[in-house]
Simulated scan of single mutants.
Amino acid sequence: MSDLAVLIHHLEAALSAAKAAQTEVDLGGVATPEYDWITSGEASHRFHVAKQTMLEWCRDAGIGRKVNGTRWMVSISRLKASGLLDTYRPRE
């Protein structure tokens, strides 16, 4: 195998690994598909939950992850499985 062929082989393997890492996010030992994540603002709107409450759930209930150190992303499947939506009652 030539040096160029070896280099191409390594680059293809690295690209494949990068794509796999992009499609799943490992949070707490469980891989979650990237399409399962929405911003906390989107989740608040979609599930009719106060923005501050959604941020607290991300932080305290483990349904979210921080991106770039400041922005919370919410896992739709984790939110639904958490039971938080079942017990949430907005303030009147």
Rank of each mutant, 00 (worst) to 15 (best):
S2D: 15
D3C: 06
D3V: 03
L4T: 10
L4Y: 00
A5G: 00
A5R: 13
A5Y: 06
L7R: 10
I8E: 01
I8F: 01
H9T: 14
H9I: 01
H10L: 10
L11V: 12
L11M: 15
E12T: 11
E12G: 00
A14T: 12
A14K: 11
L15W: 05
L15F: 05
L15S: 08
S16C: 12
A17R: 12
K19Y: 10
K19S: 09
A20C: 02
A20G: 03
A20Q: 14
A21T: 03
Q22C: 01
T23S: 12
V25T: 00
D26K: 00
L27G: 04
L27P: 01
A31I: 06
A31D: 13
A31L: 14
T32V: 02
T32S: 01
P33I: 10
P33W: 07
P33Q: 09
P33K: 01
D36K: 01
D36A: 00
W37Y: 11
W37N: 06
I38P: 06
T39P: 03
T39C: 10
S40L: 07
S40A: 14
S40Y: 13
S40V: 11
G41P: 03
A43N: 04
A43D: 06
A43W: 06
R46K: 15
F47R: 05
F47I: 02
F47D: 04
F47V: 07
H48V: 09
H48L: 08
V49R: 13
V49M: 14
V49Y: 14
V49G: 13
A50C: 02
A50K: 14
K51Q: 12
Q52I: 05
Q52N: 12
T53N: 07
L55I: 10
E56N: 15
E56I: 15
W57Q: 08
C58D: 07
D60G: 05
D60Y: 05
G62W: 07
G62L: 09
G62E: 10
G64Y: 07
R65Q: 12
R65E: 09
R65L: 06
K66C: 04
K66R: 13
V67M: 13
V67E: 14
V67L: 11
N68H: 00
G69D: 06
G69N: 13
T70S: 11
R71E: 14
M73G: 07
M73K: 10
V74T: 04
S75E: 10
S75T: 02
S75G: 03
S75W: 04
I76H: 07
R78M: 09
L79H: 02
K80F: 06
K80S: 02
A81M: 09
A81R: 10
A81I: 00
S82T: 11
G83W: 12
L85P: 13
D86M: 13
D86H: 11
Y88S: 11
R89E: 00
E92I: 01
E92M: 01
E92G: 10
